[in-house]
Each structure stands twice: as C-alpha cells, then as structure tokens.
Design a protein around this nucleic acid. Structure first.
Length: 1002
RNA sequence: GCCGGUGUGGCGAAAUGGCAGACGCACAGGACUUAAAAUCCUGGGACUAUAAAAAGUCGUGUGGGUUCGAGUCCCACCACCGGCACCA
C-alpha cells in the first residue's frame, strides 16, 4: 500500500480515546437497581446516581449484533459493517438520552476448534480462547461502544449451564393444544387407561424402581406406559428415525443444515440413516412462528423466507379403503369405519391433499416407498418388484432422488383402494416422488390437475379424468384435436361435453366438472366452494377432515461431537430392563464435558464422549447421554444473557428482563393489543422503544436457522413465564455482504480478501468505519474499494484541517520524526486550534447550512441511511471550508453529528475546542444530540423551475411568499420562457406552490 | 417452476410524482513545488451544433399506460442476485 502523507494523527488519537473510554467504562449500560457511580458520564447526563429503579431510569434501547463465531482467520471486513451500523445507532441513541444496551460476545462452540483438536491434540477450549482474544483485539481497535462488562462466550460453563437449564425446561414441558401454549410436564393429563392406582400414586418413581418386588407386573407395565406417554409429549424428546448422517463430519445434521443434499458446513455428502436422536418439538409452534411474523418489523424477504420454511398448507385428509390385500390376509369388511380400521391396523390409507375439490379425478394412489403399509398391502405377484424398487430407492442419496427433470419411477403394489366419492377401484402404486416425511406419506393422484401425477400417469398409462373446467383459450391449446374447433359457448354449461383428457395437466383454478355422486355434486362450483362442500361431506361421512400441514419438521437437536454442550440427561434401566432417560437436577448444572485424548468422531456414529468411561458411568449405575447440543443452542438465547450476564441465580433476573425487553414499568402503561392473527403483542405509549431487542443487525445466512430457533425458544420461555415478550427481536436488518474489489465474493482462492488490520493501519478506524457506511445502503451487496476508503479518509483530513492550525501541525510532524522522547499527549499538544474558529455569533447562512445538516443526519439515522447522512456532513464541510470565521458553537454541533460515525476524531477535536476556549468538556458520548430549528431553514427567496409542456425552460427566483398569480406572471415574463410561448395560446398553467410552474400551450 | 429483491454516468451511488445524477471514486485541466506526493481551485450523462458560447435533441433494463409532469404509480416483459423447489 502507498505510504502517502498521513492526513491526520489518527495513530495517536484512536488509542488515546479507546483508553479513555475503557478507563471511564463510558459505555456501561446500567440495570435497574445497579449502583451508578456519581462521576459516570451517564449519571451526570441524566442527573441520577446510586441505585435507581426501572421507572427512574431513562427509556431503554437495546441494539444487538449477531455475535460472531471467533474463527482462526480473524475478523473480515464483513463483520464491522453490521457492527459499525449498530455502533453508530447506539451512540446516536445515547446522545438522545436513551439507556443504551449494546453488548458483544462469542458464539464459540463449533467444529473448526474441534477439528483442530483432532489434528493437533490441543484442547478446543485453548483454541477458542486464542481466537476470542484475536477477535476482541480487532473489534476493540474499531472503537465500538460495547459494554464489555457483559461479554459472554457460549463455551463458558457460567453461560452454558443456563443453556442446559433451558434444555431442562424444554424437556420438562409439553405443548397443550387446549391452552395453545407450553406447560410444565407435571400438569400433563393422562388418558383414562393410564391412570394410576391410589397406591401407586403414593409412591415416587424412585421408590418403585428401587424395590421392584413392590411392583406387580401390571403396575410396572402401567408405569412404563405412563412414562412412554409422557416422554412422547415432551418438547425435547428422543426419537429413532431416519436422520441426515454426514460421514466426513462424523455427526448428524438438522434439515436446516443440509443444502442440496450436502452438509452446509464443508459441503460433504449426507445420507439418511435411522438413529436414536434428541428432537425439539418446534412443529408445535409452527402456527405461532408464522402468525407472529405480522407483529415484528422485519423485511418482507426475510419474513417470506421463514414463511416458506414453515410451509403452511391448508387441505384435507381423506381415508381410502384398501380392497385387495396381500395373500394370507383376509379381505376386510368394506363397511367398516375408520375407528374399527385403526384397531386392525391396515384397512385404510390416509392421504393429505390441498385440492380435495379434485377428489372425483383421483384415479390412482401413490405411497412413499418407506410408507409403513407398503409391505402389508403388496400382493404376492408384486412383492418381488416392490422389494427391488425399495432397495434401489434406499441406495439413492436424497440429491439423486430430487434431481431436476428426473423421470418419474414407481411400481404397482397389486393392491387397490376405493375412491370414497365415487366408489371407483383405483390402483395403489409406490413411487419416490411421494415423500414419506410430508403429510401422511401417501397421496391421491389427480393426473388431470397435477403436473407430477400427470407425468406419472402418462408414463405408466394410468387413467386420467378432468374434473376442473379450464378456460377456453387453454382448451384451444390443450384439448384433443376433435375438440379444438369448438366455440366458447359449447363449453360453458354442458359439462358432459367437456373432453375428459387434455394434452397437459390443468393446474389453475376453474369450475368443477364431472364431480358428482348420488349424495353430493360439485359441478359448477369454484375451487374454493368445491373444497368447502366436499370437505364438509367427507367429515359428515367420517371419511376425512380438514387439515393443516407444515413443511417445518421437528428440530434434530443432538450431535455426535465433542465441542458442544453436554445434555443434562442420564439413562437408566428399570427393573424389567427397559432403558429410559431422566433429567439431571438443576443442582447438577453445569454438566461439564470430560477432557479427552482423542477428539475424533467415530465411524459408527458413537459420540466421542463415550470414550470418557469415568465420565459416562455414574456411581449409581446410570449412564450419561453422550451426544452434545448443536451450535445453535448457545445462540438461541444469548441476547437474554446479556441483560444480566453475571447473574448466578437465574439465566436472567425478571426485573432486569422486564426493563430491557418490555421497557420496564412502561409496559404496564403500554397498550396490550391483539395482532390480526390473534396473538397478544405489547406496544408502548411512547413510540421511542419497542418490545424485545429494538434493533438486531446481522447476515441473511441466519434467516431460517438461528432466527427461527431463537424465536422458538423465546416463545417457550414466554409460555412458561420466564420472559415478558412473545417475540425476541422487534426490528431486524440484514446487512448486505461485501464483495471483493473485483466484484466477486471475497475468498482466499481468489486472493481478493481485504484484511481489516491493513486498512486500520493505513487509514485508521474512523475512516474504516466511515467507509463501511458510505459504500451504499446497509442492506445492499456492494464491492469493496480501497480508493473509496481514501475518499472518506480525505474527508476526515479536511475536517481535521478545518479545526487545527496548519503551522502547528507541521511542527508536530517534525517533532514526531525527530524527538522520540516526547509522549503521545505532548506531541498532540503541539497541535493548536485553527484561529479561524472564534466564539462569535453565526451568520444566518451559516446557521442554515448547519441546521440543514442536523436535519438530514438526524432523519437519515432514524431511517438507517448512513451513506446519505455522511454525504450531508461532507456537504457541510465543503461549505464550511469557505468561511473566513467559524463560530465555535456551530463547530461543536457539527462534531456531535460526526461523533457516532467517527468517534475518535470527534472526541479529540471536541476536547480541543473546550480547552482552547477555557471550557470544561464532558464526554462527547453523552452530549445531548443537537436539535434542528426549522425556522432557520426557511428561505426568503427560492428557485422555482419553469416548464413549458413539461420541459424545463428556466429557473426563476421568487420570494417564498409569492402567490400563485405572482408565480404565473414571473414565469410568463421569463426571457427564456418567452420564445416557447410566443404566438401560442396558453391552455393551462399549473402552479405547484413552492415547487414549480408548468405552462401548457395549445 | 414458485417466492423475494435489484436494474440510474467510466465506478460506488442520490433523488416526499415536480430542476435526474447530490456525495464520493476515477479522469482531465489549473495553482503551489526544482520535481513528485499531499493540498487547493475548475470541469464533466450522451449526442448535435459551434472558433467559443448561447442553444437544441435524447437519456434511469425493454415495451405500453395513467398524469400538466414518471427513475418514482399501473400493466406486460427482459436480465441479474438471493431463497425454496417432486411438500401433493
């Protein structure tokens, strides 16, 4: 990099002020009833000190960054983009008088540290601590106003004991559909057949288990059944099911961590493998997670991503009776109803459809190859083909199964089902285009109105019947030849004339045709009407019911890793040898992981923790759970721990939680409103603070992972009464990624990675911060430009020279290169204030320039438009450069505007202004934000554009008080306008007061 | 395929329906300097015309529309970016 002349001594200024802020603890945020030192700038600004309760504190403002994973590579230029935005806002809100909470911490569990441990044997904790130290140094060198007293790392036992504590809450809760919220498992109601005898009720579980002789086998059986029932209801439960297993990573992964059939981390192949895993019942919250999106201020695209991920579909479940069964199984009585069918297990297949209106067009059925009824219904003749197909499918990766433009495949089972609306006997197939994991794993196929069913039916020559009326122009294109000539009238009324097979699937909406039986007719109804009618009929006949399905699956929560939170769970055996799990008591927290010599994952999927035999086997004979929690666990609630980071008695104190998340006492005065979706949200009477985190900034990569998981945990904690808001993050903004200088994504292989340390060394942190914000709108993707950094750096140089005496700066520079003995402060003291700054009154023009700038910067900060706020300050400086005399008060105001963006240079110049004029400087960080005076912005004259027929011809100067008539006259008299209106009739003159004049000629 | 977003000078970008291109970069010319760097001043959308100026025409992805007036609103497309994708 070029070693051009330094614009200003940022290398002395920046460390100086960072040290001052640190010594003052200037950015400590104070909790209710926390001791506020009288000499703290916050105390002085708000004239409070000592222990102050929530109502006496200023209003809260919680500004949060997505905390980083401290990788070995150190900070990249993308991190400070969001951090700078939040820091500017934090400083701005502090100046406005808010009690600002702006914390930072470390999402420190994770694979890289563990992989490094596998390679070198170095404990992941050591690697993690080193990386955190690097990250912290880099972040601190940027002068962010974090309250470091609240720093946390997810790997600290003091932290993760509460992560484990929250897991216990999940474990010990269930979702009560009657109250629509999570409740303690102790309140679970058991079905009648599982009720205990009075004697058994009087015993504790341990008593029963300790002395199996006390138990007759019936009681033991019942006890086990009750446990099974209870365990099946928990929000954290164990399930043996096919999960994503990644051989290379040696662990299972959540759906959200699998992208295109590969692991999101590392891009390794994943395969489906049935394993016993911990799951979290996020699906119970699908509806709340969806509807509550309406109550929070996120971007549409982000909300849409979450909506898509949750994937709500309304439709119906329909029961199809099986009429031909595998050899050796007697045919069932076709008149049997569902309830009877349930007990014999296999006479009905239930499908899910979003188009029950097309039920009359269902000409075959398809089951997923993994569907549990497949083997039972397959006929002897077809059993070989079915078995072969199933084997083929199981070998395929999911990527191969979902490959685009793949031809449909499938096999007939030999069995048939009865279409309940028309009694038709339809074949049952299995095919991999039906997914076992969605809906019921079975579909009714309506080839006339579904692309996939159409393709399948064409390939295997299955019956196709149209039951929805397409529009005429669609018919002209897609009806068979002998129908193509028909005129529109032929199609409108007589349904019998409609061709039953078209040349393609018609999937849009239309009126129903060919859809009636003796009891019900859908013919002529719209899709919506037909759905309603047929669903009602199905429900009446006990053949089906209205249903809602979600794409969202329960969250696979265990990993076969070392470097994660151990589960606070042990496994025990009862007297009959049944294995069951049990929660450790809260007093056993934190459950620390053992130290291992070998951190390697095992090929079998046995977690590495199983190697620590002494740790795993407890003296009482029980065995520890050896899986660990995923990295997302720690990030699900860190924003709550910041509120009360040192609390050893609770994950967060309730008074503290209420102040920061609900505005403390303000929430009591606030309005409780129902959202459209019916959930309760809190709004405050004053519009200044909002429920939850007021502003959360981070990358879009967390749109469906972290942000969905954290909302889920928060809602559980809300239901259980531990937090006071239903949503954690009120406003959320995604910063756009920063590309390399070549417009490509930054990567080592491209060699276009910009190292923040280099930029800081060359231009200083104020310039770096300013540039990150000046590049463009926060949310946009934008390429890095080193020349652009130089541009804002030059701007800071101009600011500096506006305030300091150039001669004295030359002396300073000479002193710096020659006399090494002087301290930094002594060197800085050589620089004197620019004599053109004087304690005089400002001219009206100067005031106007300043107040225009205050207005623009204030409004832009409120709208997070940092780039244009910086432009406004540049305009001010360009103008101020031309002034002979610069009024002191004005220059102070400008520094206050600059301070959130470039805090070091602003503090330095602020201190100089005060000392030079014999004033005492209080910290700029707490100086009240300047207010603009609209009266000063009013002009006496203004320039008005004059158009003729919409084309600009002149700009005239008129008095602001000019009437419409004045404007008309002035416009017509303009020398430049005259040639365009001479000899023409003026049809109309449009005058927009204070805006423009438009003359329309004939 | 579906959903969301974005298209404006050489580049990053700015514009409550009312002077398109603020601000910055790059570039060009000038001042200062032995010279360079740094700094300061000036210029600039394209095209036509001109010695120069004045002036004119066109111009915000494309094509329509609404309006006295459209980058901005409406309709139909195109391109790029992001997400989802055999979810019945």
């Amino acid at each position: 990099m070029s070693s051009s002349r330094r614009q200003y001594p940022f290398h002395l200024i920046e460390p100086k002020w960072q040290k001052v802020w640190d010594e003052q603890q200037a950015f400590r945020a104070f909790n209710p009833n926390e001791e506020i030192p009288a000499n703290h700038p916050f105390a002085q600004r708000h004239k409070i000190s000592g222990k102050v309760s929530a109502p006496q504190l200023p209003p809260k403002f919680y500004i949060l960054d997505m905390f980083p994973y401290p990788s070995g590579a150190g900070l990249h230029v993308g991190h400070p983009e969001g951090y700078t935005a939040t820091d500017i806002l934090a400083r701005y809100k502090r100046a406005q008088g808010f009690n600002v909470l702006h914390p930072m911490g470390w999402d420190a569990f994770g694979l890289p540290a563990e992989q490094y441990a596998v390679k070198t044997g170095q404990h992941p904790r050591k690697t993690t601590e080193e990386n955190i130290a690097t990250f912290k140094r880099q972040i601190q060198s940027l002068g962010f106003s974090y309250d470091w007293s609240r720093e946390l790392a997810t790997t600290d036992p003091d932290y993760f004991q509460w992560t484990q504590w929250i897991f216990l809450k999940l474990y010990n809760s269930w979702f009560n559909p009657k109250t629509n919220k999570a409740e303690p498992i102790s309140k679970l109601e058991y079905p009648k057949e599982l009720e205990l005898s009075n004697w058994a009720k009087s015993q504790t579980a341990d008593e029963l288990l300790d002395d199996p002789k006390k138990l007759d086998s019936e009681t033991l059986k019942l006890w086990n059944k009750r446990r099974e029932y209870r365990d099946s209801k928990r929000l954290a439960y164990v399930s043996e099911q096919p999960v994503w297993w990644c051989e290379q990573l040696g662990t299972v992964l959540a759906n959200e961590e699998v992208v295109d059939g590969k692991s999101e981390v590392g891009g390794f192949p994943v395969v489906r493998k049935p394993m016993r895993q911990w799951m979290l019942r996020i699906t119970a919250y699908a509806e709340k997670l969806l509807t509550d999106l309406d109550t929070i201020d996120w971007t549409d695209s982000l909300k849409e991503m979450q909506r898509n991920w949750i994937g709500r579909s309304e439709g119906a479940e329909v029961d199809f009776q099986i009429v031909q069964r595998a050899a050796g199984v007697p045919p069932t009585d076709q008149t049997k109803k569902k309830s009877a069918a349930e007990t014999d297990g296999s006479t009905f297949i239930t499908v899910f459809t979003t188009r029950p209106d097309t039920l009359f067009g269902a000409t075959y059925m398809v089951l997923a190859p993994e569907h549990k009824l497949v083997d039972q219904i397959t006929t002897t003749e077809q059993s070989e083909a079915v078995a072969k197909y199933k084997t083929e499918i199981s070998k395929k990766s999911d990527l191969e199964r979902t490959e685009l433009a793949k031809e449909k495949s499938g096999v007939f089972t030999g069995a048939f089902a009865i279409n309940p609306v028309n009694g038709e006997k339809i074949p049952i197939w299995i095919a991999d285009y039906v997914l076992a994991s969605y809906g019921t794993g079975a579909i009714m196929a309506v080839p006339a109105h579904d692309e996939r069913d159409w393709e399948f039916a064409k390939k295997f020559e299955l019956k196709i019947r149209a039951v929805v009326m397409p529009p005429v122009d669609w018919l002209r294109k897609n009806a068979p030849e002998n129908w193509a000539h028909l005129e529109p009238d032929s199609f409108t009324v007589e349904f019998t004339k409609i061709p039953k097979v078209f040349k393609a699937a018609f999937t849009s909406e239309g009126h129903a045709i060919n859809s009636r039986n003796a009891e019900v007719s859908l013919d002529g109804l719209s899709v919506a009407e037909a759905k309603k009618k047929i669903t009602a009929w199905l429900e009446e006949k006990n053949l089906g019911k209205k249903t809602i399905n979600y794409k969202l699956r329960d969250w696979l929560f265990s990993r076969q890793r070392y470097w994660g939170e151990p589960f606070p769970i042990v496994w025990k055996k009862d007297a009959a040898g049944h294995l069951f799990h049990e929660a450790l008591p809260e007093s056993a927290l934190p459950v620390l992981p053992p130290t291992l010599e070998d951190y390697k994952p095992t090929a079998t999927g046995e977690p590495p923790l199983t190697r620590a035999k002494d740790w795993v086997n407890l003296p009482n004979g029980s065995v520890r759970e050896t899986n660990t929690m995923p990295q997302w666990a720690g990030s699900c609630w860190y924003y709550l721990r910041y509120l009360d980071a040192k609390n050893s008695a609770a994950f967060v104190g309730s008074e503290v939680e209420n102040y920061w998340m609900s505005g403390g006492v303000k929430s009591l005065n606030g309005e409780i409103v129902k959202s459209e979706a019916g959930s309760t949200i809190q709004r405050f009477n004053d519009s200044t603070s909002t429920p939850g985190v007021d502003l959360y900034v981070g990358g879009t990569e967390h749109a469906v992972l972290h942000l969905l998981y954290a909302r889920f945990w928060h809602k559980v904690l809300f239901d259980l009464g531990y937090v006071s808001t239903p949503e954690p993050f009120f406003k959320l903004v995604n910063q756009g990624i920063i590309l390399g200088e070549d417009g490509q994504k930054m990567s080592k292989s491209r060699g276009n990675v910009v190292n923040p340390d280099d930029v800081l060394g060359e231009y200083g942190s104020d310039a770096f911060r300013l540039y990150e914000m000046f590049m463009g709108p926060l949310e946009m993707v934008k390429p890095w430009s080193t020349k652009g950094v130089e541009g804002v750096y030059r701007f800071l140089g101009r600011v500096w020279r506006l305030f300091v005496d150039e001669k004295s700066e030359t002396e300073f520079e000479q002193a710096e290169t020659t006399t090494k003995a002087q301290s930094h402060q002594e060197l800085l003291d050589l620089i004197k204030l620019n004599p053109s700054i004087q304690n005089v009154a400002a001219t009206p023009a100067q005031l106007k320039t300043l107040h225009a700038c205050i207005k623009k910067v204030t409004e832009d900060l409120d709208g997070l438009r940092f780039n244009t706020a910086i432009s406004a300050m540049m305009v001010f400086i360009n103008e101020a450069m031309t002034w002979q005399t610069k009024p002191l008060a004005m220059m102070k105001s400008f520094l206050q505007l600059l301070a959130p963006f470039a805090p070091h240079i602003a503090e330095e110049l602020w201190a100089r202004l005060h000392s030079t004029f014999g004033q005492t400087a209080t910290s700029l960080a707490y100086a009240p934000w300047p207010k603009f005076d609209p009266a000063l912005l009013v002009e006496s004259e203004m320039e008005i554009p004059v158009q003729v027929n919409g084309k600009l011809r002149d700009v005239i100067k008129v008095s602001v008080n000019a009437t419409q008539a004045d404007l008309e006259t002035a416009a017509k008299n303009s020398e430049k306008v005259k040639p365009f209106i001479e000899g023409k009739t003026i049809k109309k003159i449009i005058v927009v007061p204070k805006k423009m004049v438009n003359i329309i000629t004939g």
